[in-house]
Nucleic acid binder design. Structure first.
Lengths: 158, 158
DNA sequence: ATAGGTAATAAGGCCCTCTTACTATATGAA
DNA sequence: TTCATATAGTAAGAGGGCCTTATTACCTAT
């Protein structure tokens, strides 16, 4: 469509795509009537998979500051989708769990995530998709490692 | 082997990476003392490549609403990096050009973009990088193509 | 108990992006 | 010419994602 194609560097490409993903997400979450935002959805997705984690752990995993997570959890908790429970071993800490009431939301969320993925990778073969995921994981590791945070080891690639 | 690895779907992966890119960018732009944000940088990069375009064209290319672009251009213009010139053929329209004064900023910007890319793709071979770009372009097209927004076919609750 | 660290949080701020008006200007009738 | 309508850019306002800097509770070791 564009006879002229400025700057298709991977750098800008990535932020372009991100904007698109966010747009699809916002729209989908809206349609689904979940009342969730992307950040909240990501949080819920994590909690569902790894229940009972501390906020600091979740924040680190999500790659955001603890304070950023607080807002997401406030919203999720208010919506009755997760609970914060004081860790008996450390009263400062709270362990986060998804409530049973979150199940439908999670299901819709999964569907939405899958739908967006399907849209994104349409036309690609299974193996291409896998390769894409692998590449993206590499990019992610490269960008997160070294500078900001380096959560768990992963593997030693430098 | 990471016993715990929540949701590595391509969907979340993309937004993860986006955040990382933005962080690197913000940091780099800061270090460079450019006083530019990512959005402004993307705008400048476009203008440099395709000078004299109308705002509507730039906005469409960047995938943002015209109003979003206005803010970026305001900032760039105030910084003396671009100028808005009324199109003699259509006094409503304005054509955007980078000023000579923008050259150093652009050079630094290029360097930063390249640096982020190098960080992101470190450990990948040339061909892998090329493939990554191709894959990302496909994702981008899939996500933007068909509908910049939702098709909303028939629904129209508006 | 006391200093120092840590988990979550309150407050405040920047950036990205959109929607909804509104102002000029352009264009095609009437 | 004059009017209706469409288009280019913009002002105003809002929601979301993130962050930094304190604060408050609580843990730990001295």
């Amino acid at each position: 469509m564009t006879p002229e194609a400025p700057d298709r560097t991977i750098t800008f490409l990535l932020s372009d795509i991100a904007r698109l993903v966010r747009q699809h997400f916002a729209e989908g979450l809206n349609d689904a009537g979940l009342g969730l935002t992307l950040g909240e959805a990501r949080t819920l997705a994590f909690v569902r998979r790894l229940p009972g984690r501390r906020q600091s752990v979740i924040a680190e995993y999500l790659g955001v500051e603890p304070m950023t997570l607080v807002g997401f959890l406030d919203k999720l908790e208010k919506a009755g989708l997760v609970v914060r429970e004081t860790d008996p071993d450390d009263r400062r800490a709270k362990r986060i769990t998804a409530t049973p009431a979150a199940a439908p939301a999670i299901a819709r969320l999964d569907a939405l995530v899958a739908q967006i993925r399907d849209t994104a990778v349409s036309g690609l073969s299974e193996s291409e998709v896998e390769q894409a995921v692998r590449l993206l994981e590499t990019l992610q590791e490269n960008l997160s490692g070294g500078a900001d945070r380096a959560p768990d080891a992963g593997e030693g690639d430098a």
